[in-house]
Structure formats: C-alpha cells, structure tokens
Design a protein around this nucleic acid. Structure first.
Length: 460
RNA sequence: GGCUGGGUGGCAGAGUGGUUAUGCUGCGGCCUGCAAAGCCGUCUACGCCGGUUCGAUUCCGACCCCAGCCUCCA
C-alpha cells in the first residue's frame, strides 16, 4: 500500500518512498513559545500527527522532530511587556503547548529540539556560509546573499525580480539585495544574546530549522511540513541555507504544507479579535471533537471554524461511540486490530481524512447492519484500527458517553432512576416511567431501551 | 501587480469523463407501551460563458467571485 503526498516543490502528488526504507525522517516547524497556541496552530500538529501515525503503520522506524522556537523577537517583546524572564516564558508556554497537543491526541515528537540549545550548530553553519561566499557581514548583522543561490525562489515559484516588484517593506540599508535575510543579528546590552564571531547577538528566524534538522535528522530529510504561509519566506530560506551549507546534498525530499483555518470566514487574527486558543476551547469542547473537526477537511483545503463544524464533529463522534457500545461485548485481541485496505488507501492518498471518515462511517453502518457477531467483530476491529490511525476513538466508552463531569446528575443518581423506571415499565406503569424519562431528559440524559435492558448516555 | 489554492445539494465535505461519496439535517416508513437508537426509503448539487467529446460537475479557454502568500504568521 503506497502513500502519495502532494509535494509543494513539484506541485503534484508523488509516491512517497523514503531515502532509507528503515528510517523515515520528518520535521515539522513547531511553535514559537510566547503565548497560547490557537486552533489554527493546532491544525498542522494534528494533520501531520496523522501522517506520523500512517508512516509508523507502514515503516519500522520513523524519526519525527518538531522544534521549539525559544528565541525570537516576539518572545523578547513579551518579556519586556510583562517583566517575566524569557526562560520562564518559554518554559511555561512549551509546557502548555505540549499539554494542549496531548489533549488533542497528538503523539509526542521523537525529538523536540530547542533553538537555544543549538547555538554552536547555528554559528558553525553561518560561519560556513560566510566562508563559501553565501553570506556576508554588514553592520553587525550577518546576511544570507540570495543572489548567491541560483535556485532561490524555487519552492515558492517566485523570482527575485517578482519579489522586488512586490516589495512592500523598506529595505534595510545594510542589505546588498532586498531579498537578503538575516542569519545573525546584534543584541543590545541587557537583551538576550550569545557570543559569536560577529559579536554578541542572536540568530535570525530561519537558521534554527536548517541547523537542527541537519543535526538530528541528517542533511537530507524525507518530509518537511508546516503551514502554507511558511512556504515563503521561511522554507525558501531554509532551503537556501541548507543547500548552500551542504552543497550537492538535497535538503528535503517532500515539502508538505497545510491550508489555513478561518474563523467564520474571516482570517483569525488578533487585530480582528477572533483568536481561539486551544487551551480555552478545550475547556468547553471535548478535545477529541476538536481533533475530528480539524480532520474533517483535507489538510490542504481551507477549513472554516464555526459552531456548525464543532457540532457536526460532535454528532459524528457520538454516533461512533454509541455504535461501539453496541458491540462492547466483543473482545478483540491486539493482532485483530488492522485497518482495512480502503482506510489505508484513503489516508495514503495525500491524507484524505474526509474520505477516511467516510470509510469509518461505513464501518459503523456495517456494525449496525450485521446479522452475526463474526461480521460485527471484523467491522469493529477495522473501525478501532482506523480510529487509531486517525487518533480517534481511543477513549474508554464511558469517558465519552457517561462522563458526569459538569453534569447535573451523578451516575449513581442516574442508574437509580433508570432502575426505578425499569421497574415501573415492568409493572406497565408507563406514566411513572415517562415521568422519570422526562426528568432524565431535563438533565441531558438520553435513554435507550433494548432487549438487554436500558442504556443511558449524556446528550453532547 | 506577481505567485498559490478554491467555488459541489439545507450545512459540512470527498470524488469522478457516462454508474450511491460520507456525516449532520428535512420528509416517509419499520421497530417501540410511547420514545431513543438503529434500519429502509427519499427531496434540494456541481460559480458563469464558450470549446473538445456520442456524452463534462469532472478536460481546455475566457470571465466573475473568495481565500492565502509576496512583511511576523500554522
């Protein structure tokens, strides 16, 4: 079963084959840790988590790195505003980020490199770029010379001339070419900084990913992913740095980028005041719902975030868990849990998660239509295995169906009422039975009578 | 202005040169003491205009509209 990925570099879907079949390498541009991650930040984390899971299904070893950018002008600015030391800010928000992502079912990366822990690597790479004529020192800055790299602009499909024509920003006078970007910049006294051959300063934004991916994954990596907005300039600059520092060695074999998330059709931005943080959102929406909602559109498509999307994800998930409850008595062994070909084909086709969800819906249907337990068994196994690839359906059933947290009634109270109602029904006292049901309905508890007895669940 | 994507039924969202996506919702039915759940059936589609074709939502061209990037940004 193959995996096809849309490669931004070639603008088409390509069959994925790792350079080393025994060791797939993948790098995702992680957060800059100066504030809470918003739901848009969560999209790449979640969709590329599915890719990570899929790769692990197909290959023995996958090395997945997601960096932490813990030195950046925005962090410095945040520190200056609050007075909180930089280390404290970055540590706190790294922890919050990881908690948020864990709640969303994102597997932890194998390596989580921090920029501040890789100064020697960055400095060495910059020094090498200067030596080979790809970078120059100017007014205490070190700049990458874009004209020294003929392929500059290839990822974004953009020529240097186009960029100059569209320039909207005043060009710093220490730049030889307006497209030249900072590798190293000076730090003022009292500002965070490291000693370097070019004076005390700090790295530019792009160099950390080049240095850290080479250090941890190798000079050539299989997959590099991130948001579509990173194509230019971030990833374009990474390519320039890495290819010039490692001449003759390809940097990234598959560039994969996720589309943007909008809020009720608007761009999510602080200036619009519509930024929804994961941390805040998961207090009132089950994180698995957030995950499913993020996977409800194919990753390259735009995804509009609104109440409807959340509600529909809730309904889908509820249906799946309810169906799983109906086959709760079927015990499965670990080796039965294999996803079907259809599921692997859907995800293998450039992570077609909506199609994958459709496959899961059909499995739900198969369970409900099945006439014997053998059929149900196979469908349940495939559903759970599919869920595992998607990072869904991994909760104990009652954590979804009967979680009493924040509810008006405890499970003891509900069970007592359900039992009382069953007695009333047995005595054909339907008036009392309906009274109890109304009482439960008022507490958002839904009753399901069946031959095996009465089941209940909370309405989501 | 340059470069990317995209416009599918009430909503979300796949996909395909001729055949049911899928989920939620609406409607009818089965089941049920009544419900709920489930099942069965069913109504609204492919931005606009041309072209290619026996046949286009699907390919090609023009147009309109939307979003993103070109500056920090997932």
């Amino acid at each position: 079963m193959s995996i096809k990925l849309y490669n931004t570099l070639t603008r088409r879907k390509e069959d994925f084959t790792p350079l080393d079949p025994d060791r797939v390498t993948m790098y995702l541009c992680g957060p800059t840790v100066y504030s809470y991650a918003h739901i848009g930040n969560a999209r790449p984390a979640v969709v590329f988590d599915v890719l990570n899971r899929l790769l692990r299904h197909h290959y023995k070893t996958v090395v997945f790195a997601r960096n932490i950018t813990d030195v950046d002008d925005k962090i410095i600015a945040a520190s200056e505003v609050s007075g909180e030391p930089i280390d404290a800010i970055t540590e706190r928000f790294t922890d919050i980020y990881n908690e948020d992502m864990q709640a969303l079912g994102v597997l932890p990366p194998d390596i989580e490199p921090r920029a501040t822990a890789h100064m020697p690597e960055m400095i060495a790479m910059i020094a090498q770029l200067i030596e080979t004529g790809h970078a120059y020192e100017s007014d205490q800055h070190v700049l990458f010379s874009v004209t020294s790299y003929p392929d500059y602009g290839k990822l974004a499909n953009r020529s240097l001339d186009d960029m100059q024509a569209g320039a909207r920003v005043e060009v710093a006078d220490y730049k030889r070419h307006p497209g030249d970007f900072v590798l190293w910049k000076p730090s003022a006294d009292g500002q965070v900084g490291w000693d370097s051959p070019w004076g005390r300063g700090r790295p530019g934004w792009h160099i950390e990913c080049s240095a850290m991916s080479a250090r941890h994954l190798g000079k050539t990596i299989d997959i590099h992913c991130g948001g579509i907005d990173l194509i230019f300039p971030h990833h374009e600059n990474e390519i320039a740095q890495s290819c010039c520092a490692h001449p003759g060695t390809p940097f990234v074999r598959y560039w994969v980028h996720n589309g943007f998330l909008t809020m009720n059709q608007d761009k999510m931005a602080k200036s619009v005041g519509n930024v929804l943080t994961v941390n805040e959102l998961r207090k009132r929406v089950h994180p698995e719902v957030l995950r499913l909602a993020l996977l409800s559109a194919q990753y390259r498509q735009p995804l509009d975030w609104n109440e409807d999307v959340v509600q529909q994800a809730t309904d889908r998930l509820d249906k799946m868990y309810c169906t799983l409850r109906s086959v709760e008595n079927i015990q499965l062994s670990e080796d039965e849990l294999t996803p079907g070909e259809e599921m692997l084909a859907a995800l293998g086709d450039d992570l077609n998660t909506p199609k994958a969800l459709a496959v899961m819906a059909k499995l739900v249907s198969r369970i409900n239509v099945a006439t014997d337990d053998d059929e149900r068994r196979v469908a349940k196994a495939q559903l759970l295995a599919s869920g595992r690839l998607m990072g869904l359906l991994e909760l104990p059933l009652n954590e979804w169906l009967q979680n009493c947290q924040g509810r008006a009634l405890s499970s003891e109270q509900i069970n007592a009422l359900v039992t009382e109602r069953e007695h009333a029904r047995a005595n054909r006292n339907f008036q009392r039975a309906d009274e109890i049901r109304q009482q439960l309905t008022d507490a958002s508890v839904q009753i399901e009578d069946s031959n095996e007895g009465t089941l209940w669940k909370f309405l989501q």
